[in-house]
Amino acid sequence: MAMRKNVKSDASNKLVIASVAFQDHIMRSLLHPDFPPPDPFLRRIRKTSRDPQEKGPQRRDGQEEREYVLDPAPPSLTLAQRLGLVASPGQRLTEDEWARVKARSVQQEESAQPCAICREEFRLQPQVLLSCSHVFHRACLQAFERFSGRKCCPMCRRDQYETRVIHDAAHLFRHQCATRIQAYWRGYITWKWYRNIRKTTCPKDKNLRRKFFEARLQELNDSFVRYCHTDTEAFLSDIDRSLSSSRRVFQQLERKSVSEPQENDWDRIKRQVIQRGVWDCPICLTALCNPSIPTQSDRSNNQQRRHTVLLSCSHLFHNLCLEAFETFAAFTAAGRPTCPLCRSAYHKKLI
């Protein structure tokens, strides 16, 4: 009888210990700081102090953002976990295991895709990496845990995951911003280069060419009006002085270039006249006396006709017409008459 009583007392003691262990485990699970229960009374019992790492390190200029584990240190084992009545939590991931998890996340391009909860881009907002290699906004994950009341991944439904703050999406966003700024700047430089080409190069299209020359003419007119002197008499006198100086320059050039042709030069000039094939006098617009350049023997037979004169500029005229033109002396170069056609000083020869 005594042994039966001892066995019953041991069984009852074990049952009491197990019930106390389960009750302690349930209470500690409900009062876990990361998972507040929906009861407002129990929310008041929640600890007001936060983990100093929850805010995360601030990024300074010239310093790289550091990754860190967001989960606090695991609490001590409950009595039920020590007795083996409830499975104890696993060991925390090491740095090598986190590196493999992050490599798997990078391979799946989790940071390049929108957040699976809010469907918005990460940009510079804080993001967390779960031990199941899924990435979410930190605020979105906290709101999901608060709404669901338990700790499970929104994608794969894995329980009791660990979280780590990463900055891959921020790096990608900064790279995209820098690329976009460079693209805009290159586009602006190209636009300036193209606009300069449009201003200086004549296009091939007919309508564009017309607009190009209209714009150039308008610019010349505007510059002429802008820089024109207000005094009309002074402006006209400036034009006269410019014309006289230009005329003197041309006269000097004509004086240097005009010389008495030799016999070989006259033969070459005659060949040019024959090659041109023009046998009308440019002054009276009538046919010349001879349809071809006559020789010295044929000149005696044509004394009654008007003589033809050959100029050193290879132009043919009636002698009387050229003499009448020279009497006006409208075009002269250094005291010498100029050709009615090309306005160059000449030497003449009767043919």
Score class of each variant (00 low, 15 high):
Ser344Ala: 08
Arg343Cys: 05
Gln142Asp: 15
Ser257Lys: 07
Trp191Cys: 12
Leu341Ala: 09
Ala21Pro: 00
Arg119Tyr: 08
Ser297Trp: 01
Pro36Cys: 00
Arg336His: 05
Arg60Glu: 15
Leu15Gly: 14
Pro203Glu: 10
Pro261Cys: 13
Arg44Met: 10
Glu254Gln: 13
Asp51Cys: 08
Arg276Phe: 06
Asp231Phe: 00
Arg247Asp: 13
Lys14Tyr: 08
Pro261Asp: 13
Leu83Lys: 07
Ile269Tyr: 03
Glu64Lys: 09
Ser29Phe: 04
Phe325Met: 03
Lys348Pro: 01
Thr295Ser: 12
Gly90Tyr: 00
Arg4Tyr: 04
Arg119Ile: 06
Leu217Trp: 02
Glu233Ala: 13
Ser49Asn: 07
Gln58Met: 12
Ser344Gly: 13
Asn221Ala: 11
Thr163Val: 10
Tyr188Gln: 14
Cys156Phe: 01
Glu64Trp: 03
Tyr194Val: 15
Lys55His: 08
Tyr194Gly: 10
Glu109Gln: 12
Lys151Ile: 06
Val249Trp: 04
Phe173Gly: 07
Arg28Cys: 05
Asn221His: 08
Ala103Tyr: 02
Arg180Gly: 07
His137Met: 04
Arg248Asn: 10
Leu83Ile: 08
Ala87Met: 07
Pro89Ser: 03
Pro52Glu: 08
Arg164Phe: 06
Glu120Gln: 15
Leu220Gly: 05
Asn196Leu: 11
Gln303Tyr: 02
Leu288Ile: 04
Glu219Tyr: 06
Ser29Ile: 00
